[in-house]
Design a binder for these strands. Structure first.
Lengths: 305, 305
DNA sequence: ACCACTTACGTTTCTCGTAACTATG
DNA sequence: CATAGTTACGAGAAACGTAAGTGGT
């Protein structure tokens, strides 16, 4: 005798209890009457209790049977929920993804990407970490992030890199800034102004200062240093400060932006954003879906409509 | 491919997930490794998702697998609870019984009987209805009670009767009552006193009045008429009233009772208490247990220790 | 006599164990 | 080469369907 319930039997039992007739239940279930007799017999054996009383030529639920109807229903629902949840996890439309990215990407890729991603994966939760490339790479290797989108991650055999999009960091000023009225602006000219820059460890600032240094020039004078990279454009909108960050902040890339690029070949930093993830670790289907989405449409999403 | 979960597979899966090894799990479950491989394969098929990743020569839960562990555990617990609940209902140690009885039985049988009954059936709830025999019989036939213990229920083919115990209703007085100082008390003598009696429709009062009438005597003078039969003895404890009810209220049957029997053959009413229930209706195991208990031990319980 | 459930029995399906196979450290 | 998991296949168990049986209306 089985000492454990069988969900199939319980499903049959529910229909039998609802109809009150083995014959009609059999039709509904595409089974024969004897099969359902067997089902009831099995349940009654494992439960050690009569579920139906044989009254006249029909059957009627006993009190134990009535109680089992309730239990059977909730068990069935719970099982169905489990199948659904796990199935969705498997398809990557549910679950959890931990993704890290640079501030520029958080501003110009994340919103569109998440919107598109969640359209087919409503039950997925996302942890988005914004940080500098060194921090992101460390967290990725530590298993704290499933994937990152970043620049200049050193390749090795434990990670996979895919180029996603290109970007250029440029010198930016408010559209009313005096430097924009000058012609043939030089690197030297830029040193006349004060700057809003990221901390020295950040890739863009490192690059910028090196460019000045290469040409025998001093580093730009920093008036505001902030690790809130995304705030830098807003900080210079109404001042005579300069900053150095992604061209995407500048009109016409951002409609209505008060900012303009200070076009200068020497201060144009090309950089490639790579999608990076660990090679041999398990990635949830939800994470795999996000990876696929970023590989296929990341560039278009970053460029905007 | 099965489209429904199997509780057995989920049980296996739990152990596999806990140990993280098919081999060790197989030992715990008294199964072989291939059997568990098959179990995992079945689950993965019905869920459409990988539950383990094959890492090295071992296995590791995927995120979907981790989620399934939680679901599997709660499903197993719910199934076990269902088995337990329905099993207890079946054994009659859980459930609900509706029982009716006469006041005397409520006083002298119900406490001991329920105590004994609930010792083995802690989860059973009881509805105890106290009433006169005609009311009880009506409610029994209407299906509002599962069983009654009463007197003089008219037998027919829809009910079953079992004698449970015998009782005698007698005239009762306070131990300080003057009638107790008289010798050779007669029926006539009793008419000198006032009475506390039940309403005229109640069996004991009917019987008593008929006994006086049979001997050409008037009915006793009623000072207090109450349907709270059980209050009658208390009402006469400190007065010169007489009452007519079960001898069980009188010392020495109730230790410390202030009441005494006015012994008189003409006022001694023998009555038999029957256990009565419907013959062809479903009786819950809990009810059947109570019936068996009353049949086997009802008499001893009524008589007291 | 008919209807509804049960029993009997053969067939199919499923699960499990044995043994051989594959892959990893 | 030892260990962990997988594949292949046959034996046994379980569930199902057909057909005959039982009981109530």
């Amino acid at each position: 005798m089985a000492d454990q319930l069988d969900l199939r039997d319980l499903r049959y039992f529910e229909v039998i209890a609802e109809t009150g007739h083995l014959g009609r239940a059999a039709k509904k279930l595409f089974r024969t009457q004897p099969a359902l007799t067997g089902c009831v017999r099995r349940l009654e054996e494992t439960l050690g209790t009569a579920l139906f009383e044989r009254v006249g030529r029909g059957i009627r639920l006993t009190s134990a049977g009535k109680a089992l109807v309730v239990r059977a229903r909730s068990l069935r629902v719970a099982a169905e929920e489990a199948v659904r949840e796990i199935g969705e996890l498997g398809e990557g439309v549910a679950g959890h993804v931990r993704v890290g990215m640079l501030p520029t990407l958080a501003r110009f890729l994340l919103p569109a990407a998440t919107q598109l991603y969640l359209k087919d994966a409503r039950e997925v939760t996302i942890k988005a970490v914004v940080g500098q490339n060194d921090v992101l790479a460390t967290q990725l290797r530590a298993g704290e992030l499933d994937l990152i989108v970043s620049t200049a991650v050193r390749p090795d055999e434990t990670i996979v890199r895919h180029p996603v999009c290109e970007d250029e960091a440029v010198v930016i000023a408010s559209r009313t800034h005096p430097v924009l009225r000058r012609k043939n602006v030089t690197l030297q000219d830029l040193l006349e102004y004060r700057w809003v820059l990221a901390p020295e460890v950040v890739g863009t600032r490192e690059w910028l200062e090196r460019e000045f240094q290469r040409r025998g020039l001093p580093a730009p004078k920093v008036q505001i240093e902030t690790n809130l990279i995304l705030m830098m454009p807003a900080l210079i909108e109404q001042t005579e400060l300069l900053t150095f960050t992604s061209r995407r902040h500048v009109a016409p890339f951002v409609a209505g932006s008060r900012l303009r690029e200070v076009a200068l070949r020497e201060t144009t930093m090309r950089r490639r954003f790579d999608l990076v993830y660990r090679k041999d670790s398990y990635l949830s289907p939800a994470a795999l879906r996000l990876i696929a989405l970023l590989r296929e449409r990341g560039e278009a999403l970053f460029k905007g409509p």
